[in-house]
Design a protein around this nucleic acid. Structure first.
Lengths: 217, 217
DNA sequence: GTCTATACGGTGATAGAC
DNA sequence: GTCTATCACCGTATAGAC
């Protein structure tokens, strides 16, 4: 039972940007959903486990998300949004040259906040049901396109003399990082984030020999 | 209702290798399980859907596999076994030189029988629950080790002068193919088996320039 | 908005006839 | 070995009080 600060005499309702109760509750329930998936897996995540994790009743989850499916879809969207915020911030903070940008976006992918056993399990749980849940599919497509384009743009800047090879290299890098995510998920005792990052950098150095020094550790 | 050939007057029980009724039933139910996952997804696969797919009662599934979890674990094992049989056969049939072997094992990975939307969805369904189902984990580890070693051995033969680089290359190839599987599963409209195979070969040509001609299409 | 209570339909597993 | 019948339980979603 968490304390709701109803003590404020008059919340400024007129302010549009002011996050209302609804937005706060939605986020509270979405976070509880992701925690429940981390704790119990997607298959054993029920409205009951979510409600317990959020310290709320089941009824309120349905009230805000209409159905369990609606809730899970929004949880997946939140997961992607967190992921996107992370790599976009990394790009924004990186020095303004393509090699540094590429390095930043790869590092972001293996960031401890983004790429850990718990979160990877959540990704794979959703991906495992994607074919049978059209809503998941829509969200996945929407978010992934953006990042693939970003990587490709950077690679073309990195190798302006051969855009075709740059596109190929960007696809290899994207795929190899996906592959390492999979290995980190399936074989957590054989792979580590550090190892995956190091090996990805070695591949990048191999692909962009002119910029190898930008990917030293 | 499939016809059981009970008409044989006396089945030769003494022959050990003769598959008994039990083995036949087990396989029948396991195949029905995989079909059910393909059709309905793992989340909606129940003893009822499996029994319907097998044209048997639920009782018999429990009789042979003790529990739903036991059934699903064995289904995953069958999936891995099919996969392993495929790449091992490809290796056995390939010309006896490392480049041809590597080519064969990669081609096997993108074979239409192995790598199609339906089967990929089954793989990802199991992987999505792996962290919460220790039995899956055991099976995954057991089977994957073998294949990773096979690829590494071949790569070392391909580049005997630099075993460290060969190991790295084998890891990249393994990861990039995993990554393409993921893309094929998540974005079936943007990626095709042919595209994935072609791009994997291009990477291999890039990694083993001395054997590039062995990976032309 | 939030809760509790409940309807209603499955779900895995068992029992016992054949 | 295989089936049907059945049990105890749990799941989502709704209804209605507050």
């Amino acid at each position: 039972m968490q304390t709701l600060s109803n003590s404020d005499p008059k919340p400024p309702k007129e302010r549009k940007e002011r996050k209302g109760n609804a937005d706060m509750r939605r986020r509270q329930i979405l976070d509880a959903t992701l925690r429940s998936i981390i704790l119990s897996g997607l298959a054993k995540t029920t409205l009951a486990t979510v409600a317990a994790e959020a310290d709320l009743s089941q009824g309120v989850a349905i009230f805000y998300f209409k159905s369990k499916n609606g809730l899970l879809s929004e949880a997946l969207r939140e997961l992607y949004q967190n992921y996107e915020d992370n790599w976009e911030a990394a790009l924004a903070n990186a020095p303004n040259n393509p090699a540094a940008k590429l390095r930043a976006i790869i590092e972001a992918d293996f960031d401890a906040e983004i790429c850990n056993n718990d979160t990877l399990a959540v990704w794979f749980a959703f991906w495992g049901e994607q074919k049978f849940t059209p809503q998941y599919s829509k969200i996945t497509n929407q978010y992934d396109q953006k990042r693939a384009n970003a990587i490709e743009d950077i690679c073309i800047q990195l190798l302006p003399s051969d855009p075709e090879k740059a596109k190929l290299a960007s696809d290899w890098i994207d795929s190899v990082t996906d592959g390492y995510w999979q290995k980190l998920h399936l074989f957590p005792q054989s792979y580590s984030r550090e190892m995956a990052l190091r090996r990805t950098f070695l591949l990048v150095q191999f692909l962009f020999t002119d910029h190898a020094q930008a990917f030293e550790l």
